[in-house]
Amino acid sequence: MLIVTCVKQVPDTTQVKVDPVTGTLIREGVPFIINPFDTYALEESLRLKEKYGFRVAVISMGPPNTEVTLRKALSLGADEVILLSDRAFGGADTLATSMVLAEAIKKLGKKDEVAMVICGRQTIDGDTAQVGPGIATRLGYSQLTLVDHIENVDLNAKKIRVRRRLEGRHELVEAPLPAMIAVLREINRPRYPTVPMRIFAQDAPVILWNNKEMGLREDTIGLKGSATQVRKIFSPHREKGEIIGDGVKDPQASARLLVERLKEKNILIL
């Protein structure tokens, strides 16, 4: 039984700036990191591996340098890592991305039965949270988003019980396997790699699947297969506010003042 974990390599968004003139991302010198949410997905996969004996395959679609992120997954304990990389995959939106990922999962499923696909809740660059659900829809898997706890996996009955964190409440859900699970930060604390594993990961195999391998129709992938296009990128204009009250001398009065202002502007409704 296999768990497929989807990860994405993203630019470290705390270091990304938008060129105010051209409106494009200044990518130069910006380091790439593993999408932080995906580290929780990988950790959860590894914990399920330790508990139930799954194999963990990690897949990622991206340019060749995504290998760095996949090697990190290997150093943490992934059994197999696959890089989906082809010029034809480039410029994909969530629709086209989920296409490639879903097909890769199908391909993996031919060798070993897929029990679940685990994704992070969203990426920090696109922030759409659509790829996970997209994969689930395309594959017809149970779709479990916003999961902050996996209660039980019943391999005989092929069922999974998870807790979803919604606004102000939790929801306990039981669903049939295979399932796509998108996890929240709260689900676990990711581990740290040991040095022998890091050294092992330095020259362990990273499997590359390009479109020759995948054989997908050009109009379903990449820019051509995308239903949305980026028109413009810009930094939202930030206006400096005013300082009201004196929080040091009289915190109560300034809190009252703040509440009044927020009510005036219809931001706070009491």
Binding site: R191, Y192, T194, V195, P196
Partner: peptide
């Protein structure tokens, strides 16, 4: 740290 990756939680964030 290196063989067991067994460190107090706050250190993992520091290391990363």
């Amino acid at each position: 740290v290196e063989m067991k990756a067994k460190v107090p939680e706050e250190l993992i964030a520091l290391f990363e």
